[in-house]
Each structure stands twice: as structure tokens, then as C-alpha cells.
Simulated assay, not measured.
Amino acid sequence: MSPESQASEALPSRRRRAPRGGRHRGDESFLLPPGSPTLVLAVPGPARRAGAEPALELARLVEIEHTGQPARVAYLEGDEANLHTVLAGLHHDPDELAAVVVPMSTGPDPAMDAALRHAVAAAPANAVAAEPLGPHPLIAEALHDRLADAGLARADRIRLMTMVTAASGVIIATPGDATAVRQAEVTGVLLASRLAAPVFTASLNDDASVKAAAEQLRAAGATSIALAPHLIGPEPDAARVASAAATVGCPHSAPLGP
């Protein structure tokens, strides 16, 4: 994390349930009561842009996990499945909440957040805008998985602890402004505990920020650095991942995906 800032945001509360086996074991509970509002995943950009598949896959997974729970995908740009159109098409009762709109982003994005709030305020149905998906322990787990997929971290664990990592330091590169960087630091702390390696956070939109994070890692003794993109995949910023990694001469993992 950046030495001049500290993240103060609290992590979401968690509820225990029986542990699952396999790679995706965890203790998160996502049980939804019958008749819950429609879940709308709000994706930046238009529907036809390449990279929108993670939102469609997430919507499918929600409906599989929660039989009868509707999940829709809407886009903040373009005419096809536009967020305004999707919200206008929902059944609305003035006394009931019709939809919860979740931005497909890992942290605050002023432009995206403003567009989402505008659409929710203009909707004929009662709808609320949710917070971004991060910071959250599952984001840290997904970052670890992507690093392992790229051969940049060991996924082996002893009593759920990672003992060895292929990279001796990691840069979490997040889109957005300084607020997004500070929030991503919470996820950075969680990832560092999983990897037993230092993790610093930088802005994906600022090469100087990425270079500063790399210098801090090297000063901390890291001899091999990896860049982990703190984004889901449909964001326009995904195109900057390769160039950001090239700026400091390090490999990178893939975006988080569904």
C-alpha cells in the first residue's frame, strides 16, 4: 500500500455456513429470500464491445445459485440493453423495491458511479444503486487465483496458507482516482497475507504511480515483481494493463473475470 495513505473502509460482515470443498471453498453466505428484487449488473460501455462476457456469466451463476432469482445485465452506453431501458422494463410497484443495481467495478469510478445514479434516479421502478464489488476478501482470492493461473504465484497451501510465491512482490493496479487506490489497499493487505509477500497498490491510469510502487517493492527487497489488474474485465482500462506492466518490466496476470 502507499506509505502516505491508509485505508479506513471496513470490510463487509460475513456469515458462517458449512464449508465447501474444492478450490472455491469459502464461508460466504449469499442466500437470498424469495421475492428478492431483480439483480441488475451494470456494465461500463456498450453491449457489443468485446469483454462483456464476465457480466453475462455472473448473471447466469446467480440464477443457478438462487433458483427463481432474476438477474439482468445492463449497459451504461449504447442502445442495446441500456440500463435506462432495462430498469424501465421491470415490473414496478410503488411500495416494493424492484431492482438492486450493482456496478461491475472493483472500486469507485466517478464517471461510472454518476451514470449509474442518474439511471436509477430516472427509473420508473423503485431501484437502488449498490456499492462497487470491492474491497472484499473474495476479490483478494480472485487476484490470487489469476496470479496462480499465470504462474506468478503458488496456489499450494498448508492449512489454507500460501507458503511460496513465484513473484516476490505484487503491484495491484486499479483503475480510478486516489480514492479507488486507497480502497484497493484493503484488498492489497488481504492479498499480501495470502502470498506472504509485499503488495503495493497503484493507479492503472498513471504510469508514475506504477513506477513508484515498483520502486517501493524493490526497496523492500522484492527481486521479481508481478502486476495484478484490479478490474473485472469489461472496463475500458483493461487495455492499459499490458502497457502498465511494460512500464516497469514485469509480467501481469489476467483481469478477474467472472
Rank of each mutant, 00 (worst) to 15 (best):
S2Y: 03
S2N: 11
P3Y: 02
Q6N: 09
S8T: 15
E9D: 11
E9Q: 14
E9V: 15
L11V: 11
P12A: 06
S13M: 09
R15Q: 14
R16F: 13
R17D: 09
G22P: 01
R25F: 08
E28F: 02
S36A: 15
S36Y: 01
S36I: 03
S36K: 07
P37S: 05
L41C: 00
V43C: 02
P44L: 13
P44R: 06
G45L: 12
A47S: 12
R48C: 10
G51I: 12
A52S: 13
E53G: 07
A55V: 13
E57S: 11
L58N: 02
L58I: 11
A59V: 12
L61N: 10
V62N: 00
E63S: 10
E65T: 08
G68M: 10
A71V: 08
V73Q: 08
A74P: 11
D79F: 08
D79S: 15
N82W: 00
V86Q: 00
A88R: 11
G89A: 09
D93Q: 05
D95G: 10
E96I: 07
E96N: 07
L97G: 04
L97T: 03
L97S: 05
V101C: 02
T106P: 02
G107C: 13
P108E: 07
P108K: 02
M112K: 01
M112Y: 05
D113E: 12
A114S: 15
L116N: 06
H118R: 15
A119Q: 04
A122S: 14
A122F: 00
A123R: 03
A123M: 08
A125E: 01
A127C: 12
A129Y: 06
P132L: 08
G134S: 02
I139C: 06
A140R: 01
E141V: 12
A142L: 14
H144M: 13
A148R: 04
A148M: 02
D149H: 06
D149Y: 09
L152S: 05
A153R: 07
R154E: 15
A155M: 11
D156C: 05
D156E: 15
D156N: 03
R157N: 07
I158E: 13
I158Y: 02
M161D: 08
M161A: 09
M161N: 12
T162W: 01
M163D: 02
V164T: 12
V164W: 03
A167D: 09
S168H: 10
G169Y: 06
I171R: 01
I171V: 14
D177I: 04
D177N: 10
R182V: 13
Q183G: 02
G188A: 06
R194F: 03
A196W: 07
P198C: 04
V199K: 00
A202E: 03
S203I: 06
D206P: 05
A208Q: 13
S209M: 05
E215K: 10
L217S: 03
R218L: 05
A219K: 09
A219R: 13
A219G: 08
A219V: 04
A222C: 06
S224R: 15
A226R: 09
L227F: 04
P229F: 07
I232G: 04
D237K: 03
V241D: 06
A244C: 05
A245H: 01
A245M: 10
A246L: 13
G249Q: 09
A254F: 09
L256I: 15
